[in-house]
């Protein structure tokens, strides 16, 4: 069963100069056990989707299903949320926060579970410190600990690494991958393209309230760019004939080929090798997800 399905969800908000369309026709499903990245520029509708899934926002039309059911308190207890800039009451300690949420999530062996998540998120030393005294990274770790309390089957992550230093962000990404290994399905919204490339199995690109692209990261990139460049450094300058046969652009002992698939790269290397050249270095210039993001938003404007 799909952990999350949105079927033709539409949402508009009232605006001073007329209604603002937040979601035009959001229609996608998340597969069990995957990390699904929801990408898009600011105001595209990513957080609106999360809020609708969390029952904080009612769509104008369309349906949302979490594990086949409409979002309800019982369903919400099976999932969890980590949002960038997650906040709790300034006077609470992490231990208070975890105790409260373990009560709210009806966790049976509370003390054991709290000790476990504190240890997992390496926040034991922070447990008695007031929330207002914690750094941004420490606050996110507490939010992470809270999100692990109910061992969620689906975890919604709304720009979790926003404003974190690279070291903490890397640790968080590692923990996200660990969660995935333990079977948790994750919906991740982020602006950081490298994060998506590292973490996500599939992505959905949302622009002005519409999912305009969906698929595996590689597939999506290939679909939009079609080709990539391979630059080979050879032991000598390639002959004119080889350059013509393999459609190479030659500059001294470097040859550049424009390829369409992984197979094409293997064929190129085999052809160069058969022609008696030694390959000293290979450099692949593949488009990044950031190139994709810029291309797509450019095309849509």
């Amino acid at each position: 069963m799909n952990p999350l399905i949105l079927s033709h969800v539409k949402k508009t908000f009232p605006g001073k100069t007329g209604p603002i369309v937040a979601l035009r026709d959001a229609d996608f499903a998340i597969e069990e056990g995957e990390i699904f990245g929801l990408l898009g520029p600011n105001g595209a509708g990513k957080t609106t989707i999360i809020n609708i899934a969390l029952n904080l926002l009612k769509p104008d039309s369309g349906e949302v299903r979490i594990f086949g059911e409409k979002p309800s308190p019982n369903v919400l207890r099976q999932i969890n949320l980590i949002a960038g800039g997650s906040s709790f009451h300034w006077a609470q300690t992490p231990k208070d926060i975890l105790t409260f949420f373990s009560k709210a999530y009806h966790i049976p062996d509370r003390d054991k579970k709290i000790a476990e998540v504190l240890q997992k998120t390496r926040t034991e030393h922070l447990q008695d410190r007031k929330f207002s005294w914690l750094s941004t990274g420490e606050r996110l770790r507490v939010a992470f600990a809270k999100a692990l309390l109910n061992s969620p089957k689906l975890l919604l992550m709304d720009e979790p690494t926003l404003g974190l230093d690279p070291d903490v962000a890397r640790q968080i990404r590692k923990e996200v991958l660990d969660l995935k290994k333990s079977g948790t399905t994750i919906l991740l919204t982020t602006h950081y393209m490298h994060e998506v490339e590292q973490l996500c199995d599939r992505i959905g690109f949302i622009y002005r309230g519409q999912i305009i692209d969906i698929g595996r990261v590689k597939e999506v990139k290939l679909k939009h760019f079609g080709t990539y460049d391979a630059i080979l450094t050879l032991n000598k300058k390639p002959s004119a004939r080889l350059a013509k046969d393999l459609a190479l652009t030659v500059k001294e002992n470097k040859a550049k080929a424009t390829l369409e698939s992984e197979d094409a790269l293997a064929n190129l290397l085999a052809a160069v090798h058969t022609a008696g050249y030694k390959i000293i270095d290979i450099h692949l210039k593949k488009p990044s997800l950031e190139d994709y993001f810029i291309k797509i938003t450019g095309e849509q404007q």
């Binding site: 904080l56 207890r77 009451h89 949420f101 709210a104």
Partner: peptide, 18 residues
């Protein structure tokens, strides 16, 4: 209001508390 000032109401409501 303290839940609003501390931006923590969302966390409470998404924990299945009506």
């Amino acid at each position: 209001m303290e839940d609003l000032w501390s931006n923590s109401l969302r966390q409470v409501l998404v924990a299945g508390i009506t």
